[in-house]
């Protein structure tokens, strides 16, 4: 009986959630591929860190993959994003290669920032990623500036600014949202609310229950989505992109999600319970949810899923090898890129 009803659903895509109506099966399988790529990239980076191959720190977005992929789904290649310290997922979702990302983490010249930025400043300007940012809310006004460029130069580009729940209490967030609304700029503010700004919960830090409510103060739509359900995120992003491209101005999307890992490598997880973490991992993992849906709707079978997992494992292994084999910067180049070199 289950099989028969499943076939009927596939026959009538009209009844399926947004992404299954909007995108081709190939595109959707690629989304699953990218979600795995994000997950395994971060697991690979974490392992390299634990083994002492990478120094510094990193902020993992494991558990937030549907949010990054859903927001970027309706974006064109030349649309732009600003990202956060928890930005590996955004970078991959916008089209970055994991080999050059690993190379950056290893501090190599082949990295996206030639070893100058590391995890916290990962960028891929050619693909429209203007960079992760180590300052909470630092990228939000920059995204508004990029959107102002789009409007003044009439390029039609839409700009997405990713930030976390912590950023919504920074002044830059409020100043930037206000200006974007006053000037009706093609920008989408995406708050990935994972419940905690480092250790402080939104309940303890934020006067409104939902961050999306703050959109009302800036006279723009405020949309709440389940950030762990790819289709929900993609649908909200699609509408916001349409609105931005039509010149109707910005949207604030609150994507409610959860990070499985701690804030950074120094986190002892004392501010949340093991039960809470395990519940999110077991019952609301965004990759599991999307993969199950894809399979239930007949867009992929077990063999297809395994093929994706195998391909991702190889990409990760190859990427780490590429990073290890790449040259480190010469000390003599220390002051390169501080200023633009004379032509």
């Amino acid at each position: 009986m289950a099989g028969a009803s499943k076939a009927a659903v596939v026959d009538s895509r009209a009844n399926l959630p947004f992404v299954y109506r909007q995108y081709s099966p190939e595109q959707l399988r690629e989304v699953l591929h990218k979600m795995y790529l994000i997950r395994r990239f971060e697991e690979g980076a974490e392992e390299c860190y634990t083994r002492g191959l990478i120094h510094g720190t990193m902020h993992l977005s494991i558990g937030q993959e549907a949010s990054a992929m859903g927001i970027c789904m309706p974006l064109a290649e030349d649309d732009q994003i600003t990202s956060t310290h928890r930005g590996h997922g955004h970078c991959i979702a916008k089209g970055a290669e994991v080999s050059r990302m690993f190379a950056e983490f290893f501090g190599k010249t082949t990295g996206y920032c030639k070893g100058r930025g590391g995890s916290m400043h990962i960028a891929d300007v050619a693909k429209g990623n203007l960079g992760a940012n180590g300052i909470v809310a630092g990228g939000i006004p920059i995204a508004v500036g990029a959107a102002l460029s789009s409007k003044m130069m009439k390029t039609g580009k839409v700009v997405v600014s990713f930030f976390g729940d912590g950023a919504n209490n920074e002044g830059a967030f409020h100043e930037a949202l206000n200006m974007a609304a006053v000037w009706k700029l093609p920008v989408i503010f995406v708050c990935e609310n994972n419940g905690y700004g480092m250790s402080t919960s939104t309940a303890r830090s934020t006067a409104v229950k939902n961050i999306a409510e703050r959109a009302a103060a800036y006279s723009m739509p405020g949309v709440i989505v389940n950030g762990n359900i790819f289709s929900e995120v993609a649908e909200a992003s699609f509408k916001a992109v349409e609105r931005a491209r039509a010149g109707e101005g910005p949207t604030l999307i609150e994507s409610k999600t959860y990070r499985h890992r701690g804030h950074s490598k120094s986190d002892r997880n004392r501010y949340r319970t093991k039960e809470e973490i395990e519940d999110w991992m077991a019952n609301r993992d965004p990759i599991t949810l999307f993969e199950t849906e894809l399979r239930d709707f007949g867009f992929i079978d077990d063999q297809g899923i395994q093929a994706i997992r195998d391909a991702v494992a190889k990409e990760i292994a190859d990427g780490i090898e590429f990073a290890k084999a790449s040259p480190a910067p010469e000390i003599a180049t220390l002051q390169n890129y501080v200023y633009t070199e004379p032509a």
Partner: peptide
């Protein structure tokens, strides 16, 4: 001032 400076920076890196 903070937001405005940031908007100027964002516009500058994107061609203005």
């Amino acid at each position: 001032e903070l937001g405005g400076a940031g908007v100027a920076v964002g516009a500058a890196v994107t061609g203005m």
